[in-house]
Design a protein around this nucleic acid. Structure first.
Lengths: 223, 223
DNA sequence: ATGTAACATTGATATAAATCAACTATATTT
DNA sequence: AAATATAGTTGATTTATATCAATGTTACAT
């Protein structure tokens, strides 16, 4: 059943309903973000649980002199504040819309009240939490143990799995693709050209097709 | 009140007691590990919650061709299986004792049963969880954005805060100190010598004293 | 007490990847 | 439609860091 506030299917709304409580309409804030707008900023205090209901966003760490690391992309349904729900006073990362996005926000103390009384919500949160951690672990290994060729291969494969198809339009710039793999923009371009010339991918502008998935996987593993 | 099984103060035991249930004595397994023995192995299935009650251990990711990354060290009290409690079927990391260690283990389904009925346990788990995530985020930034000098500075500072003193005995080899900072063993040695010659630290064998903490912090920040 | 393995150190060399620079193409805005 | 900003591309150069090699030192086992 869609949320009464935003007319969409929503985990948070379902959770409230299943908790048996009256749905506290006023407590759910809906907000829209244009492309490039920040949904939450690293260092800001965490006051609301944020739930992405439409659009696409990037979750990234802001590092030294403007060098970011994009940990992963997000599409609905996704808990944006996930990793900061519990006992993190400040966000340890930023989230920015890379396509116009809609979110629902719930005050954090309300969510806590909810999940303490509702096992289903809690298990759902924990499951999402676990997945995020697994993703991050994989990222750490990738960034620190693979060469740039292996890293870009992994990023391309993760995008394919993100979209569920081997043909997709890059949702990010070359620079951002670099930030997903901790590679400079220039080398990102070079590597894409290289992979294209080798017939492993086809790429024109932002339209990517992975031609030889097994080989790309091998590059990702060995890199 | 100490645990009946292992005669030590133990969060898990307290949790069971506070849940009002009869303490399922047989369900808590106590185990000892010698230095260098593995407590859990990356890839193995998660069956028990493991709680470190004595000794010291390192939590690390096993990467490609034997290159590990140590995420952090652990001393009691610490949930070893923490990041894998929820919905992670397999460990995404390994834990090895770096000093003889004692642990308590509880079947995972029992813990789940427990924390679903007991808010205090859950909040405690979540708090620990949140701390781990914050640590890991910091690590990602450090490893990817700082030069090796900044990285080793951060590792030394984190050891000082781990022990709560500026004078401590390194619990790890040079190679492992390198694995904490993603630096080769050789460069780790070189950097330590460099910092010693500059009068920032003193180091003889494994005995370290941080002489100029403000400067070391600056190196860590700017690195 | 002696041999062996693990750990630590230093210098020389190789190399992967960033940075710098200059330029082209594609979008936005006015 | 022109102007400006953003995004993408390619080559040359620099540099940080790993790797290789050789050797010293300490701890541990027999």
């Amino acid at each position: 059943m869609p949320c009464e506030a935003c007319k969409r299917k929503c985990d948070l709304y379902d959770a409230f309903r299943s908790s048996g409580k009256a749905f506290p309409e006023s407590s759910i804030i809906r907000a829209g973000f244009r492309k490039h707008e920040m949904i939450c900023r690293q260092g800001d205090s965490v006051s609301h649980a944020i739930y992405l209901t439409s659009g696409t966003a990037k979750l990234y760490i802001e590092g030294i002199n403007g060098h970011n690391i994009i940990l992963y992309l997000m599409r609905p349904p996704a808990y944006i504040g996930l990793l900061s729900f519990f006992e993190s006073i400040h966000y340890t990362y930023s989230v920015t819309a890379i396509e116009d996005a809609q979110v629902c926000m719930v005050k954090l103390d309300l969510l806590k009240e909810l999940y303490l009384g509702n096992h289903e919500v809690l298990l759902r949160l924990n499951r999402a939490f676990g997945k995020s951690v697994a993703l991050i672990m994989k990222k750490i290994i990738c960034l620190n143990q693979k060469n740039i060729r292996g890293r870009i291969a992994e990023s391309l494969l993760s995008l394919a799995s993100f979209y569920g198809t081997d043909s997709f339009r890059l949702p990010v710039t070359r620079k951002e693709l670099g930030e997903m793999s901790a590679i400079s923009e220039e080398n990102t371009v070079r590597l894409l050209t290289e992979l294209r010339k080798e017939g492993i991918i086809s790429i024109q502008g932002r339209d990517v097709t992975i031609i030889d998935t097994p080989l790309l996987s091998k590059i990702s593993e060995l890199g």
